[in-house]
Computed example of a mutant assay.
Amino acid sequence: MKRMPWHIAVFLAPAVLVYSVFSALPLLDTLRLGFYATTDTGSTHFAGLSNYLTILTDPAWSAAFWNAMWNNCKFFFIHLLIQNPIGLVLATLLSLKGLKGARHYRTLIFLPTLLSVVIIGFIWQLILSPLWGVSEGLMAKVGLGDYFAPWLGQESSALITLALISVWQFVGIPMMLIYAALLAVPEDIVEAAHVEGASAWRIFWEIKLPLILPTLGLVTILTFVGNFNAFDLIYSVKGAIAGPNYSTDILGTLFYRTFFGYQSQVGSPTMGAAVATLMFLVILAGVGTYFYFVQRKLTRYEL
Rank of each mutant, 00 (worst) to 15 (best):
I86Q: 05
I86P: 01
G87F: 02
L88C: 08
V89P: 01
V89E: 01
V89K: 01
A91P: 01
A91E: 05
A91S: 08
T92I: 05
T92K: 11
L93G: 10
L93V: 13
L93H: 07
S95Q: 05
L96T: 09
L96H: 07
K97C: 07
G98H: 12
G98N: 04
K100Q: 14
K100E: 11
K100H: 14
K100W: 14
G101Y: 10
A102I: 06
A102Y: 10
A102T: 10
H104Q: 14
H104F: 13
H104I: 14
H104W: 15
H104R: 15
H104E: 09
Y105P: 06
R106D: 00
R106G: 07
R106T: 02
R106Y: 01
T107S: 13
I109V: 15
I109H: 08
I109L: 12
F110D: 05
F110Y: 12
L111S: 14
L111F: 15
P112V: 06
T113M: 13
L114N: 12
L114H: 10
L114P: 13
L114V: 11
L114M: 15
L115M: 12
L115D: 09
L115R: 01
S116V: 08
V117R: 02
V118M: 11
I119M: 14
I120E: 01
F122G: 02
I123K: 04
I123A: 12
I123L: 14
I123V: 15
W124A: 00
W124R: 00
W124S: 00
W124F: 07
I127E: 01
I127D: 00
L128P: 07
S129P: 03
S129M: 03
P130R: 00
W132H: 07
G133F: 06
G133H: 01
G133T: 09
G133K: 05
G133E: 02
G133S: 07
V134Q: 09
V134F: 09
S135P: 01
S135I: 09
E136T: 04
E136Q: 15
